[in-house]
Design a protein around this nucleic acid. Structure first.
Lengths: 147, 147
DNA sequence: GTAGGTGCAAAATTTTTGCATGTTA
DNA sequence: TAACATGCAAAAATTTTGCACCTAC
């Protein structure tokens, strides 16, 4: 249960430690590595506390991202996905079925050559590789998909 | 006016060449490099053809992405951005003001080591670097911005 | 007790869909 | 003219906001 550190950080930062905040942290912990959308997190939180509202979950997720406890991902399907305390990594997304896999490829993309940086201070990177997962790729050699 | 090639491709693929398709292509051409959202493209199209509907623009943008004439980007603000015929490149996004700059960094990320690929066939990559643009970075050393 | 947090409901955005009508080839 | 494309309006889905009430400290 790693969420203890995040709870301490809430306390130290002057935020209150509420049951809702604890529940979101625990849900993120339980879903670590599964790239949950806000609705997935809400669903898990509601298994214990059915009256928690979407607004609260969104507010807490934003806080956690601001605090650096979590990161928001854009995997191309129009909703935000969340990761708690992630080891930096890239993602493989199947454009056919939407499957997402972590890609533990160590690229330190924050070290952009100064010449190209346009004065930006780069603090994070998001790398998404798009393609076909094995299952969706298999039928493709002999038959080009209609879409 | 590079959209001529795309128009030819429409004709060859059995799609009809409609004024709406031509207008979307010309808008994408005019906005090349500006990372327009669908609403930006619609607004430009409507300067010439006020009755074009959002649904039509979305349908045409999807077609163009499927045809490989354009790409959709996720820059982290909840709406899709579009680029026509882009040279592959990464993006710098300012997390404070939302400014987006191209980053002409030649990384061939589709060459993922086999060991890590998990069987995926990788066809494209999206690299987004997040940080602070020069303007938003400047005041930060002495004063943390309120937003 | 008070500052801050939450639930609810409504709104705002973006994107999709159904269907009657219009248009390209 | 026949298949395809569009406009319109409504729906869907996600995320944000206003406000009265509640609670952690």
């Amino acid at each position: 249960m790693n969420s203890a550190a995040a709870i301490r950080r809430y306390r130290r930062s002057g935020h209150k430690v509420t049951p809702q905040r604890v529940a979101v942290l625990r849900a993120l912990e339980a879903l670590r590595g599964r790239h949950p959308a806000a609705s997935d997190i809400l669903a898990l939180v509601r298994r214990e506390q059915p009256r928690v509202s979407p607004a609260t979950v969104y507010r807490i997720l934003h806080e956690l991202c601001d605090m650096g406890q979590a990161v928001a991902l854009d995997l191309g399907d129009g909703r935000a996905r969340f990761d708690i305390n992630p080891v930096p990594h890239a993602h493989l997304v199947c454009e056919a079925c939407g499957r997402v896999e972590d890609l533990l490829w160590s690229l330190d993309l924050t070290r952009v050559p100064d010449r190209l940086r346009k004065g930006f201070l780069v603090t994070g990177a998001q790398v998404t590789l798009v393609g076909r997962c094995p299952a969706c790729h298999r039928g493709e050699v002999t038959a080009i998909p209609s879409g």
